[in-house]
């Protein structure tokens, strides 16, 4: 599949945004973060800006962005529509949490309830994003049960890294956020490894013989192409990164997304001056985000659509 850059940016930015929203909400609900208005304003501001930036970026992928509002209508059947509805719905508790945090609670328990709802909304949105891909039976590398859990784990991982950088700026304890990030990244790493094993060992069961129904006559090989230049289908669905490059990029993704941030998080546990801590945390965020971008690019570039068998024969 052709890597859609606006979608890659969208899922990376909004993933980190939802991850941060989840951890800040959890911090509030469990009493792990101070209720300083400045932290609430900045933290939730960054989280919601990333989410919004991601959503806006995803509309760049559309042929008719001005009609994007129509995408909220088909939540009964479409995961893409559900994602949109869940994303918009999550703004409500997130906004209530922000108001309660910054301006003070007006009703007892208001902030805690909003925090739990924001967590639920974020998780549902991330799950829907994963389901958009994993529900497509036409693309074997996407039609995998591990796709939504990986999306969630990586969002929690990158959001946790953001929290590690953010909390110390407001004099808050970030050790719980570091622990949360370590757990999320390790889980993400294990799931992603399992995912790669799954797609590497998946049998290529859709053949050109079945696609044309001509298998009883022998092997089916393309003779004359239907058109001289690649069409939309070939440009969009025929894109595939060479296996050699993919394996190299998997290593890059593992290094930047898991190894580097984990090493930096461990280093953060040592007693360091505040400035050094902040630098390490920001380095971990940058490394993790670039790692997710590489991972997302590969998610597209390694995925093969069944339609390619009509053009190149063989199996997919």
């Amino acid at each position: 599949m052709h890597p859609a850059y606006s979608v890659i940016v969208f899922t990376t930015a909004s993933g980190a945004g939802y991850g941060l929203l989840i951890w800040l909400s959890a911090g509030v609900a469990l009493g792990l973060v101070p209720r300083t208005p400045a932290l609430g304003f900045t933290g939730l501001g960054i989280a919601l800006s990333l989410v919004t930036l991601g959503l806006l970026s995803s509309t760049l992928h559309l042929g008719r962005p001005e009609r994007a509002w129509r995408a909220f209508s088909q939540w009964r059947s479409s995961w893409l529509s559900r994602e949109g509805v869940a994303a918009v719905a999550t703004y409500l508790p997130a906004g209530a949490l922000g108001l309660g945090w910054v301006f003070g609670e007006t009703m007892p328990g208001q902030v805690t309830t909003a925090a739990w709802l924001a967590i639920a909304g974020s998780l549902v949105t991330l799950w829907c994003t994963g389901k958009i891909y994993s529900s497509l039976t036409t693309i074997r590398a996407w039609n995998q049960p591990l796709v939504p859990p990986v999306y969630i784990a990586l969002a929690l991982g990158t959001g946790g890294l953001l929290a590690c950088a953010l909390l110390p700026m407001f004099g808050a304890d970030a050790r719980w956020a570091a622990a949360a990030s370590v757990v999320s990244l390790v889980v993400g790493w294990v799931l992603k490894r399992r995912y790669w094993t799954a797609i590497d060992s998946a049998a290529r069961t859709h053949t050109a013989e079945a696609a044309t129904g001509l298998g009883h006559l022998g092997t089916v090989r393309p003779l004359d192409p239907p058109h001289t230049q690649p069409n939309y289908v070939m440009r969009e669905m025929g894109y595939q990164v060479a296996r050699r490059h993919a394996l190299k990029l998997r290593k890059v993704a593992v290094g930047l997304l898991f190894l580097m941030p984990l090493a930096l998080l461990i280093w953060l546990l040592a007693p360091l001056p505040a400035f050094a801590q902040l630098t390490l945390a920001i380095a971990a965020v940058l490394s993790g985000v670039i790692g997710v971008l590489v991972e997302r690019w590969l998610f597209f570039a390694e995925a093969e659509h069944v339609v390619v068998v009509y053009y190149r024969g063989g199996a997919a």
Partner: peptide
């Protein structure tokens, strides 16, 4: 009403949908 999200073309195994740039 189509917004050109292209998801339907991904869902078709037969390559029957072509996006009009």
């Amino acid at each position: 009403t189509c917004i050109g999200c292209k998801l339907c073309s991904w869902a078709c195994p037969y390559g029957a949908r072509e996006y009009d740039h």
